[in-house]
Simulated scan of single mutants.
Amino acid sequence: MRQTLVIANWKLNGNTALLKTMAEHFHHVDIQEQVDVVICPPAVYLKTAAVLFEPTGIKLGGQNCSEHGSGAFTGEISAEMLSDIGCSYVIIGHSERRAIFAESNEMIAGKIKQAQKGKLCPVLCVGETLAEREANDVESVIREQLETALVDADFDNLVIAYEPVWAIGTGKTATPEQAQEVHKMIRDWVAKKAPESAQKIQILYGGSVKADNASTLFHQADIDGGLIGGASLDTEQFDAICKAAKDI
């Protein structure tokens, strides 16, 4: 059985007060044996988070890393730096990075390589826009994202997150059946590339997951948890999502 995984992506949100509130809450909540939980605050808060969350067993992740290991790249953060301050995961290829910061599949492949070299587990985000879905291009778009980004990847140290771009921050959510269909397609693709990893790899859903839809989504056969955006900024709602994952 695959362990359920819930990742909080705070994006450009949060502060020290929220970290303290959430750490205090989860200090008294025992979910770690049934579900893996990862918090990805803005990079400036990672060291503080490492101290606050250490008693909870919750792991830390970066929201991004450089495709470079070191050098004259002002403002960049390397995978090894994230690992050095206590991160175990890093989100790579989020749709906002692709759309707003023009990250290509090739650049994302470089980041995957750096993350695994730096002993981090990359969380590769893939997904289609509304136009691509309406044109029936979902499978071809996601297959291209996977093929290019994971060309040299270690599938035993990898998480994939399916995030339909049209459902991120919009309040819209793919139906459980729509999400399951794409998750199965991704797992089938992995089975062709790395057969021994296909049934072990965690594939997450990331598209407006909330407390009231988490359980239905997580009960789908190939959905192993969620990459949570806005709802992860609300301690009670994020706790409810984690509990839904625990009950799978």
Rank of each mutant, 00 (worst) to 15 (best):
Gly169Tyr: 05
Arg133Met: 08
Ile168Arg: 06
Thr21Gln: 13
Lys246Leu: 15
Glu196Met: 14
His94Tyr: 08
Gln178Asp: 13
Glu33Cys: 12
Phe26Val: 00
Gly69Trp: 03
Lys59Cys: 03
Gly57His: 05
Asp222Ser: 08
Tyr162Leu: 13
Lys172Pro: 15
Asp156Glu: 08
Asp156His: 08
Phe26Asn: 07
Ile85Tyr: 09
Gln3Gly: 06
Met1Asn: 13
Gly71Leu: 10
Ala153Asn: 02
Asp224Gln: 14
Val29Met: 04
Leu82Ser: 04
Lys59Leu: 10
Ala245Ile: 00
Glu139Asp: 12
Ala198Ile: 07
Gly110Asp: 02
Asn157Cys: 12
Glu96Lys: 02
Ile223Arg: 01
Ala231Lys: 00
Cys65Tyr: 02
Lys113Trp: 02
Ile112Phe: 06
Ala72Thr: 08
Gln116Thr: 03
Leu12Glu: 05
Tyr89Leu: 07
Ala50Pro: 01
Asp247His: 11
Ile228Val: 15
Gly14Ala: 07
Gly93Arg: 02
Glu96Gln: 13
Lys210Asn: 10
Ala174Gln: 06
Leu227Pro: 09
Leu217Asp: 06
Gly110Gln: 00
Cys125Gln: 09
Lys246Ile: 00
Glu128Gly: 13
Lys119Gln: 11
Lys246Tyr: 10
Lys210Pro: 10
Glu54Gly: 02
Val182Ala: 13
Asp247Tyr: 06
Lys117Pro: 01
Ile228Gly: 06
Lys111Leu: 13
Gly61Met: 09
Pro176Trp: 11
Val165Arg: 00
Gly57Ser: 06
Glu54Met: 05
Phe73His: 15
Lys59Glu: 10
Gly57Tyr: 07
Ala49Lys: 04
Ala149Thr: 02
Glu196Leu: 14
Ile168Ala: 13
Met1Lys: 08
Ile241Phe: 11
Ser232Cys: 04
Ile142Asn: 06
Met185Val: 00
Met1Ala: 15
Lys246His: 11
Gly118Glu: 03
Ala43Pro: 00
Gln180Arg: 05
Ala191Gln: 15
Gly69Lys: 11
Gln180Val: 05
Ile77Trp: 01
Ile248Tyr: 15
Lys193Leu: 14
Ala214Lys: 01
His25Val: 04
Ala115Pro: 11
Gly86Val: 01
Thr48Asp: 06
Glu54Leu: 07
Thr21Pro: 03
Gln34Phe: 12
Ile31Ala: 11
Thr173Arg: 12
Ala221Asp: 15
Glu33Asp: 13
Arg133Cys: 05
Gln145Ile: 05
Ser197Asp: 09
Leu227Tyr: 04
Lys117Gln: 10
Ile160Arg: 03
